[in-house]
Design a protein around this nucleic acid. Structure first.
Lengths: 399, 399
DNA sequence: GGGCCTTTGTCCTCTGCGTGGAGAAAGTTG
DNA sequence: CAACTTTCTCCACGCAGAGGACAAAGGCCC
């Protein structure tokens, strides 16, 4: 089928498309209430959007006391692809234009294999989604990568955990392969956008989104927009020092947050505890059948749930350290919300409680007074929804 | 005389006014080059501004190869008042519409005396400036206070070092007393705006401005706009913990940056060193004639310049601690510039060197690669220029 | 000094956006 | 079925802004 080629011709049309994306099908009259345009002008713009095929008529709306209005919705055959590349796995999802996830696949993978191998896999996953009848093609794709990105060009810059990606023209290459517009961003920023669009951060303008996975990063949203910093490395809080002369870190320093608490650090600690015999629960897991050599955050969570003291202590200590850093960020940034997400969120409320304690104790009341600190609500779909949102923001803006 | 009553009627006029403010007198042709409007449209808007009296003709411009153009400038009789209230002194200045400081007075004062007493003094200082012929009245005033402000209303909220100001309607009250529009902001934010307008931060979009005075604060500029946070307390970095179980702080916690290094902490340390006899230079200062009981940052600077080892060590240690915090902020915020200012800047390059060392060592190369860390260039005028800028931004925006 | 070019300023026309009103169409309520 | 609401369409008018034509003013070269 023909893919979306048209783009909104002016700011009004872009505004309308975003309203339809965020609010679902809407009557012309309801749209009129939201955009402050005269009825005639609105009718003209809607008609033009109908002509382009970006939106379609969708039956009659319920009456609001008089004549019933016609419903309008985004073209139901529009498809966005959301790709979230993590350190050890990829998520790929298809959404419609309203950013509802229609299909989602996840596969283990190692970013260190380099962009060519990874994108081969991503394309295969996208093809699988297509083959299952969810899409006949894609109108745009958003890609998240676990490292800093020069945003306008869509190119990773000096990513510590993915050497070989430095300077690889991700946007350019994928745009070629997929035959549609592509935008690239840091995975943490996309998680923030996802939670903003469909998760806990709806209607919050300034917030932080902390992702604790293999590494630790932080998405920063200022005035509803993601802030990326001067070189695209804003939010890189994994290498803030939490322990003078602490553990050596891959970055060359000592005592980085990431060296003391993150998916990777936690796994190391857990294995150490298992082998030293301090933790019977973890030792049992290591010796269990089908174990393939590595403990994970989920294992630690399981051990903690079973009452293992060492596992609980690992989580609590990590939460304290993370909370200490977050307390500093809260003082500095004064957000309206802090979202915690990423693979380690399996540790759940033990972790959250430790973080909260630390933040509420260390930051000033004015900043913490009405500050919710919550777990992300979307889990692994936050990234792909954020990716879809990224490209739709791009496409639903004046040409 | 009649004061400015008119305001720009639309975004174009506001744009033109700001261009004239930031670029000084300009020919109509030069303005045309900058605003992307047709000559006819530009002429219409300029004529309207001339009618309002906000701008005036100012002779002929130099030829650019053809007919000479007429110069336009902001009305030379416009006056803004900039007020910078510190913990222990006030700065009041008059500027013209181009934000050039025409007169500047500084007086010692104690904020803890409360808003009524302080504003009495401020009004007297403003009257003095008026009496010296610099102004016949004020078209607007910007006020900086040393604590968080609910910005839209111009009201201090829960300011730690100025109890008695909490909830005082500063904007409202001063607007009454001065008979002109008033805007209120945190003093650190104003310093940032000052350095952005006329100092080292010109043409930088994202930067941090760290003010080390009686306390420590940080102005945050995102995309050229000051970021104030959800409750107006963004940038409050004085209470970030730098030393677990460190010195007790007025905020109730221990180990806050401000407890270990700030104008107040430095003075205490210096006096301690003087009395214990570890520092001959400082002891000499204390015993010198005319000494009124308190050492200051300037005294420490003098001692350090004279080679006093203890003074140097105090500065170096403070710089290390500050640098440690800034390193974290740099990782998080990825600014394009860090400006250091405030009373303690007298400590100069010893301090700067210590900060730089710490930041460049602790933050990742991608964030520090091209990151200048410099002293503010405006000193005590940064605040008042920022204050004038604040109110002019307000007045030079569409009504 | 004179001719020619460039730049600037003014005037005029034309286009097209957007408003607001009138009136028809479609529903609801009593 | 009548009266009132809401929605939709059509139309006329106002107006902002673009762009061209032309005049004014100065520079440059001979």
């Amino acid at each position: 089928m023909r893919r979306m080629t048209a783009r909104p011709a002016n700011a009004h049309q872009a505004r309308l498309l975003r309203l339809l994306r965020d609010g679902g099908p809407n009557s012309r009259a309801q749209l009129g209430d939201q955009v402050d345009l005269s009825r005639s002008k609105l009718a003209v713009e809607v008609d033009r959007l109908l002509e382009t095929g970006l939106v379609v008529a969708d039956g009659l709306a319920a009456s609001r006391g008089g004549r019933r209005s016609h419903n309008i919705r985004l073209a139901p055959e529009l498809r966005f692809l959301g790709v979230d590349i993590g350190a050890t796995s990829v998520d790929v999802a298809v959404t419609n234009a309203e950013l509802e996830v229609l299909g989602h696949v996840n596969q283990p993978m190692d970013v260190r294999e380099g962009p060519v191998a990874v994108f081969e896999q991503v394309l295969a996953m996208a093809a699988k989604l297509k083959a299952s009848g969810l899409a006949e093609g894609f109108d745009g794709a958003g890609i998240g990568v676990p490292g800093p990105v020069r945003f306008p060009e869509g190119v990773p810059v000096a990513p510590p955990i993915m050497p070989g990606w430095d300077g690889f023209p991700v946007r350019e290459a994928l745009s070629q392969d997929l035959g549609c517009p592509v935008m690239v961003d840091n995975d943490v920023n996309l998680m923030a956008m996802g939670e903003q669009h469909a998760g806990v951060a709806r209607s919050v303008h300034d917030f932080l989104c902390i992702k604790i996975g293999t590494g630790i990063g932080c998405g920063i949203v200022v005035g509803g927009e993601v802030y990326r910093g001067t070189t695209g490395s804003a939010g890189d809080i994994g290498h803030i020092q939490v322990e003078p002369d602490g553990r050596p870190c891959a970055c060359g320093n000592r005592g980085c947050l990431e060296a003391h608490f993150s998916g990777a650090a936690l796994a190391r600690d857990a294995e150490e505890a298992a082998h030293s015999g301090r933790s019977p629960e973890l030792a049992a897991l290591v010796e269990a059948e089908g174990f393939e050599g590595r403990l994970s955050a989920a294992d630690v969570a399981a051990a903690a749930a079973a009452g293992d003291a060492v596992a609980l202590e690992l989580i609590r200590e990590g939460g304290n350290r993370t909370g200490q850093v977050i307390a500093g960020l809260v003082s500095f940034f004064n957000p309206g919300l802090v979202v915690i997400g990423g693979g380690v969120t399996g540790l759940g409320h033990t972790l959250l409680a430790a973080i909260r304690t630390q933040v509420y104790r260390q930051s000033l009341p004015l900043a913490t007074g009405n500050l919710p600190i919550v777990l992300g609500e979307l889990g692994p779909t936050a990234g792909v929804i954020g990716a879809a949102r990224l490209i739709s923001d791009h496409l639903f803006s004046p040409a």
